[in-house]
Write a protein that binds this DNA or RNA. Structure first.
Length: 628
RNA sequence: GCCACCUUAGCUCAGUUGGUUAGAGCGACUGUUUUGUAAACAGUAGGUCGUCGGUUCGAAUCCGACAGGUGGCUCCA
């Protein structure tokens, strides 16, 4: 386990002290307002702090945030000094019991027992108040301000007046010690910064993030929808949204097909037997969508994953070591009955599509196969302009893993070799492996610095065993293949959610649902004919083009194309008709330079078609500011 | 599943402490206009106020259940 927080430079530790102090002040205010409160833990977290409290029957609402904020301000304005002192663990427990702080008592008793047991079932990062160690603790730290005292490891700032700028954000539920079976407490979240300016900057950043929320853009850009009649967590995609899906999965498939993957197809319903064999039934049975046959006695389920089906295809034929590796690829939808509260936008849904693939290979082929997949992931994320780093997730020394230790060791070594060879940024972590094998998790960073886990490559020693998969080796004996699961986009829906926010809806030409929009200056026949003609020509180049010849002003039509974030807009009027040339208006983010030179229609279309084909971010075309 | 909050026209939102025919902007439609790079003008239609039940002389407004959503917790093969 790690230290509570790593001391970076001075600034970092100062802001940490401020956030700890703010949590402390929050507790001060709450205790003043509701003296019967039972305090849980109140750590500093990224951008702020929170405190978990138990108020019994009293349920806080947003209106209470104002009251609490006012009380906190009073404490801050009083500029009470923070006094730190240590108590022996016995004294501390006595204090907690006298003050009826049952949660603190529990924590202190655990600390007294032994640091290691605490470390095991507590996330010390969340604890905040409690120091982490490997042995029993004999004294703990307290902070006092005014007549409020709280168990707290600190550090704190000198006095309440120096805690910086804060804003209470929200109230939510949180289970005591993060365990669903424990009591649910109320968590009050706040953000805290050294200065008012920094706080405002952070709040502005949140506003920006809200503007590019994929749910909002999905509506505005006409990409996807939900329907009450269909059900929650079951997204549907419009023609525009479907273009995005098809282009992305097409690219993902193309990358792997170049490495010998073959497409397969499986049905979406299966007998539940399949998952009893795979072992998923015991672990995830409650999240299966069940269906019943009205004709037979079959108990059926919608597939929650694809590997067991693909295993059937592998097992359909006898395999020789010469056939290996066998590589299947399928973009297909899976269904998982997530708990209702866990759904949200496209990030967590009940039907989602995986760009799934499975490699069945000999143990000596693992590294080479991983190599190909890493190359593909690298190219895909470069193309969508997201930075990638990978986590090598290994087993630890516990016995929670299946397969021989030796198999794991060679597999982990091959995993690492492949990653090193790929030159991707990586880090290693023990204890993060799946029970059936080590894995590579990809973290992609978006345009506003948030990291998302999207792609994953997993080795699997278990399913080949459970399904009795085998191939005949050179020695004439039967051998077990190793399976490699891989999805480059992960879930297409989640990827789109992230990607829409990454680009703020300004998709590069190859992905743009509408690549070119043609506007007519008037509705005279000759103008409309030229526009329609241009559209037909563009379609011959495989481009997605719409004509806007509505009875509106050019300004208005430009505005509407801008709102839809169309990369290229061409206006057709007298000038274009007589010259046969166009002056494309180019969306700002893909524009490199401007010029006032009109280009020929053919030249324009050829360039755009090439850009779409080569999936570039920027255009080589020169736009004009159109001062005609 | 748990905690808190939200749901009014296709979209974004007003709607005073429960009180007559629930409003606006955008969008749609019709007409006028024939438009040159981010919003022409006028008119028309569009709502059982998420659904069901309750309290009340009277409910968009208060209460309950359900559905859907948002932020967290828990979970995520």
């Amino acid at each position: 386990m790690l230290l509570l927080f790593v001391m970076g430079d001075k600034e970092d530790s100062n802001i940490q002290a401020m956030r700890h102090s703010l949590a402390h002040i929050l507790a001060t205010a709450i205790t003043k307002l509701w003296p019967e409160v039972k305090l849980g833990v109140g750590p500093a977290v990224e951008n702020g702090f929170y405190y978990d409290i138990d108020l019994g029957e009293k349920k806080l609402s947003d209106a209470d945030l104002k009251v609490i904020t006012d009380e906190m301000r009073k404490v801050i304005n009083a500029n009470q000094p923070f006094e730190q002192y240590d108590l022996s663990i016995e004294e501390a427990i006595k204090w907690a019991q006298e003050n009826k702080q049952t949660y603190k008592t529990e924590l202190l008793n655990d600390l007294k027992r032994a640091g290691t047991t605490v470390a095991k079932d507590l996330d010390t990062e969340e604890l905040g108040t409690i120091t982490d160690s490997n042995s029993a603790v004999d004294s703990v730290s307290f902070y006092k301000n005014g007549d409020f005292i709280d168990l707290c490891r600190g550090p704190h700032v000198e006095s309440t007046g120096k805690a910086g700028a804060f804003k209470l954000m929200r109230i939510s539920g949180a289970y005591w010690r993060g365990n669903e079976k424990n009591a649910q407490m109320q968590r009050i979240y706040g953000v805290g910064f050294e200065t008012k300016e920094q706080l405002n900057k952070h709040l502005e950043m949140l506003e920006q993030a809200k503007k590019r929320d994929h749910r909002k853009l999905g509506q505005e850009l006409d990409l996807f929808l939900f329907s009450d009649l269909v059900g929650s967590g079951l997204p549907m995609f419009t023609p525009r949204g479907t273009v995005l899906r098809d282009e992305l999965t097409g690219f993902s498939n193309q990358l792997r097909q170049s490495h010998g993957f073959q497409k397969v197809w499986i049905p979406h319903v299966t007998k539940t037997e399949l998952y009893k064999v795979s072992g998923h039934w015991d672990k995830f049975g409650s999240e299966l969508f069940l269906a019943e046959s009205q004709e037979t006695s079959d108990k059926l389920a919608l597939k929650p994953m694809n590997c067991p089906h693909h295993n059937q295809i592998f097992a359909f034929q006898q395999r020789s070591y010469r056939d290996m590796p066998v590589k299947y690829l399928e973009t297909t939808t899976v269904y998982r009955d997530e708990k209702s509260g866990e759904l949200g936008g496209l990030s967590r849904v009940r039907s989602f599509t995986q760009d799934d693939s499975h490699v069945y290979c000999r143990p000596d082929q693992i590294e080479q196969e991983l190599n190909h997949l890493l190359l593909d992931a690298d190219e895909l994320y470069k193309t969508v302009n997201m930075e990638l780093r990978v986590r090598l997730s290994y087993r630890d020394e516990s016995n929670d893993y299946l397969g021989t230790k030796q198999l794991w060791e060679t597999a982990q070594k091959q995993l690492k070799n492949a990653v090193v060879k790929s030159e991707l940024e990586y880090f290693e972590q023990d204890g993060e492996a799946a029970f059936y094998g080590p894995k590579i998790d990809f973290m992609a960073t978006d345009a506003i610095g948030r990291e998302h886990q999207l792609a994953t490559i997993q080795l699997d020693f278990v399913q080949p065993e459970r399904f009795g998969l085998e191939y005949t080796g050179e020695d004439g004996k039967k051998h077990r293949p190793v399976m490699i699961h891989c999805a480059l986009l992960g879930s297409v829906e989640r990827f789109l959610g992230v990607y829409i926010e990454h680009t703020a809806g300004k998709f590069p030409v190859w992905l743009a649902p509408e690549q070119i929009r043609i506007l007519t200056v008037n509705q005279e026949k000759v103008t409309v004919d030229v526009a329609t003609n241009l559209q037909e020509k563009a379609r011959e180049y495989g481009l997605r083009v719409e004509v806007d010849n509505t009875n509106e002003s050019v300004g208005k039509k430009i505005r509407s194309s801008e709102l839809m974030k169309v990369p290229y807009v061409v206006v057709i009027g007298e000038k274009e008709i007589s010259s046969g040339k166009v002056l494309p208006r180019i969306r700002k983010d893909i524009e490199v330079q401007e010029s006032l030179e009109p280009v020929s229609v053919e030249g324009f279309l050829k360039t755009v078609a090439n850009e779409a084909k080569s999936r570039v971010q920027k255009t080589s075309l020169m736009s004009s500011k159109h001062k005609i």
